[in-house]
Structures are given as C-alpha cells and as structure tokens.
Design a protein around this nucleic acid. Sequence first.
DNA 1: ATATAAATGAAAACTTTTCTCATTTGCATC
DNA 2: GATGCAAATGAGAAAAGTTTTCATTTATAT
Lengths: 136, 136
Amino acid sequence: MESQDLRKAGLKVTLPRLKVLEILENSEQRHLSAEDVYKAMLEMGEEIGLATVYRVLTQFEGAGLVSRLNIDGGHAVFELEDGTHHDHLLCVRCNNIEEFVDEVIEKRQRAIAKDKGFEMTDHSLYIYGICQKCQK
Amino acid sequence: MESQDLRKAGLKVTLPRLKVLEILENSEQRHLSAEDVYKAMLEMGEEIGLATVYRVLTQFEGAGLVSRLNIDGGHAVFELEDGTHHDHLLCVRCNNIEEFVDEVIEKRQRAIAKDKGFEMTDHSLYIYGICQKCQK
DNA sequence: ATATAAATGAAAACTTTTCTCATTTGCATC
DNA sequence: GATGCAAATGAGAAAAGTTTTCATTTATAT
C-alpha cells in the first residue's frame, strides 16, 4: 500500500522510509517533529539515525507526502499531507495543534498580495492561544 | 529622548543600548536581524559583542520597544514597535519586507479562535511572494 | 566618592538541522 | 538466485542562529 507511494515518488522502498510513514500514520498526534519521529522509532525497537529521519522527512515533503510547519521559534513539525490546504491553531500551554480552513482569509490574502504587487507563492498563518482543555 | 524610554523600561542607560536604538531608528531598512545590527554597529566604529546585541534586542522586546518576527526557516528580525498591529509580506527573492493591516482577517481570526474554544494570545501571518521589483 | 547591582564582551554551549563519507541496501539485470 | 551499481543509511562533524557563563566593567543611588 505505502510502498506504491514511495515508488511513485521515485524513492526506493526502504525500511526506514516505511517505518517513518507508519509512525506518521499511526501516531495519535498528527503533528510530529523529527525528534518525535526519531524517538518513536527507537521505542519501536528500530535502529535509525536522526539524520536519516530528517532526510526522509525532507524527501517526503518534496514528494508531497508530508508538509512541514515552521513553528514560532525555530523547530519544525511534519504532518501527513491530506491534499487540503489549512492553517493552524496552536495551544501555547499543551502544544496541541488544531487545523482550520477559512476561505474568507484565503481570499483576503490573495487580494492583499495583488494590491501590493506581490506574486504570492505561499503563506503561513498561525493563531496562538490557550485551548479549551487548558483553560480549566 | 530615548534615555527616557530605557529608564521607563527599567533598563540602565548604556552606550550599547543607546546605539542599538539609534541604529533601529536610523536604518533605511525597518527590519533588521541581530547580525545586521551588529554589523551596523561595527561600521559605526562602535565596539560591541554579538551577545550584547541579542541581549539588548530581547530586553527591548520585553519592554515593548521592539517586536521580533520569526521568519520561515529560523532567523529572527526586529522592528521598532510603533504601536500598530500589522502583518507582513516577504519577498522570497530580495527578502524585502512590507507591512499590511487587514481588519477583515483580524476579525476572522478572532472568530475562528472563539469557534475552536481558544483564548487567542497572539497570531502570526506571513504572505510569501515575489515583489513587484523582482518580477521584472 | 563609593558600594553594589546590573551590563558587557568573549568564548563556550546549545538547539535544530544539514553535510560528509565510508558502509550497506534495494533493485534491475544476468 | 547471483551480481553490480546507484541510492540510501548511520555516525559524527559541521553549520547557523541564539543563549549562557563568568570574569570584568559600568551606571547609578547613597
């Protein structure tokens, strides 16, 4: 099943790649840092180098299998690509990440870029706050 | 004039602090990295350590004198705080930064946070693209 | 003038990510 | 199935940006 995805992306089917995919698919957290993936790997009893995790995730990003979020203050997290564009809400207490789609905002962004003479290539929007659970 | 700002912020009035403020005020670029400030300092013939630049900028941020932007991919730039909230458009070719304010987007963000049960503390929106100059 | 708490500079440390290079592996071909 | 070769891997070094440490210097209240 996933081997096909790798082959389609022009990547050899290797154990590290399959395992990284498996972790991304089975993790209860949709958003994982390279470190998270690395630790999950070791917990599964799989030998892997952290450099390989970074390489694999970067290749997956290039192949459109995952997307990378650059969170405030430096470190990146990865999520399985599901074909939908969406933005993120981050809880500053528990680091939970939620997703949302808002067509009004999307439209305004395009209008702003046009207005400023920019050819928009990308955008990133993060809303930081305290999630419902953490407010109690 | 600026000495007052420093004193109000509970910071001693020192040469490095005054000089960093001066650079932020007089630079033709509104958005400067710590490295930029450091280099400008050396060009002015002022001795300063890079660590001091970072410390001073971080203190200024805490005091509300400057704000820090975390640009995609890691490094931060600082701008003099002008009391207005605004978001940013970044040119991926020349790294020029423009600012914009959009009340529609602001309103939608608040609505989304509320809808998801988040108590919004902050948000960041960056539109990446190719600016008018760089399109030619 | 002086004491003292804060600020500074230089270098080391830290964090996250990428690179290097020798070794191993997947896979097409025989 | 054996074999050859390009691609992938692991370990550690390196890079980039930022923070910390600590001995020395400086600003400011007394």
